[in-house]
Amino acid sequence: MSFVFGMHIMEGFLPMKWAALWSIAALPFIIAGCRQIAGVVREEPKLLALLAFAGAFVFVLSSLKMPSVTGSCSHPTGVGLGAILFGPGAMVILGMIVLLFQALLLAHGGITTLGANVFSMAIVGPFVAYGVYRLMSKLGAPQGLSVFSGAALGSLITYLVTAAQLALAHPAEVGGFYASLVKFAAIFGVTQIPISIAEGLLTVMVMNLLMAYSRDEIESLSLLRNGGSIHVNN
């Protein structure tokens, strides 16, 4: 049996009960995400291109497996950018589409582990990215630093959630959940540290371009309009 390397939980590697549990946990977020995207389509159809842009960013970044200081590879998630622009709900759907594509065509992740992978990469990641970004903006951090921190932490915590999901399903015989968590976190978490930093920097680069070329679209995102957290230097 040959395994294709990827960074999500592999097909069949979560026992049925955990696979079901994570799928059920992801469901309400998926429904809320559909509603949020439907809201964008209805109220601000001109923002669809920017939404597609955020989706394309996830598509590209999750295909780039990068070398890490641990001597293994992992890939960025790309969900931070869209979460910062549109809020985390929209990214649940965009992230899920990418995970589905990779599960079906690349044997990367899986159908039975889709719920768990959606939960880590498309729910926790975007919520962390969005939360950190908003918090830092409120505290008066420069926009670049807020974007960097949001995207980088969202990416890192995605993989810590993956480690926790695996540890819950496969606790060590000695030491149980925590002993397993330490092992999985050492693999996924430590590998992801430099890659999260790279993702944070790349997200700042793309945000710089968007601020230069799509200022009006970004301003019309009601989310940012209410928060007033985007500063435009022109």
């Binding site: 992992s74 693999i187 992801q192």
Partner: peptide, 13 residues
Amino acid sequence: EFGGADGEAESVI
């Protein structure tokens, strides 16, 4: 080797 992190996770499992 620069293998995938999930390949290592498999050996932990």
